[in-house]
Design a protein around this nucleic acid. Structure first.
Lengths: 133, 133
DNA sequence: AATTACACTCTCCTTTGGGTAAGTATAAAT
DNA sequence: ATTTATACTTACCCAAAGGAGAGTGTAATT
């Protein structure tokens, strides 16, 4: 057993550790690149089909799109409506919970848009500081 | 080349695609489990040492702690101050930018705390619906 | 008869994430 | 002389993420 694991037990916590773990699990699942990108795409475009989301989320592969949508459906963030026609037609949309998450995430998007220049600046400074000496 | 990739180029975009890509890259990096957990730990505890963060972030390994902290320093989210004593003493703290990100993330934490019960409910419903027929 | 459309699924493969364990440096405490 | 403390790094390993590409089913189109 590592020193870290031993030491960790020493700290007390004011909040219910069971809920804390649950929340961290949710954060761990929801704080996913593709989840967030799909969330935004659906928030801005309402009901969208599979291929529509693929167009709205640059760089996502079919595999990841399918997988992420399934997880989001499982978590109750999106609804999935199959129209049994040929060729197939499947509509995706945010649920109320998905919309509320999207709203909660709005601040992060704004932060990213507001700070991307400063981040690049920080990176350059880091490289200059640590790369030279 | 896949159909998806071909189709994607067709869609025009109102916003600067270069900035869009930058923002999505930032989201992709920042939307990381450990980053978010460390962010919260530092936000709530101010200046903390390496081993202190390890105690505050349950389940993180030394390797991931080191790696994530380096990335956060690179992105300008945390400051790292080395006190050249023996045994070593290194202080970590959020920068202004780190604090602002933490603030932006606050909404997501609150969402997770508010909705974890509903998520578990949705999962049960999903399994009942898709597992039976 | 061949092609296209759509929303997948499946297989193969490479990359990354992430855990464990051991090693490092050195001064102070035992 | 050995242990302890701290903040790492390195090496080894496995599992998960994720990309590329091919295949599927069927009806309408060409």
């Amino acid at each position: 057993m590592s020193q870290l694991l031993k030491a960790r037990e020493a700290y007390p916590s004011e909040i219910d550790p069971a809920i804390e773990r649950l929340v961290q699990d949710i954060i761990g699942k929801v704080a996913d690149k593709w989840t967030m990108l799909i969330l935004e795409a659906l928030e801005e475009n309402g009901t969208v089909r599979f291929s529509g989301i693929a167009k709205l989320v640059p760089g996502i592969s079919q595999k990841m799109l399918t997988k992420t949508l399934r997880q989001m459906e499982y978590d109750g963030l999106v609804s999935r409506v199959i129209h049994p026609v040929i060729p197939p037609h499947v509509d995706y949309a945010l649920t109320d919970m998905g919309r509320s998450l999207s709203e909660a995430f709005c601040g992060v998007w704004q932060w990213a848009e507001a700070h991307h220049a400063r981040i690049e600046q920080a990176r350059a400074a880091f490289l200059a500081k640590s790369g030279k000496p």
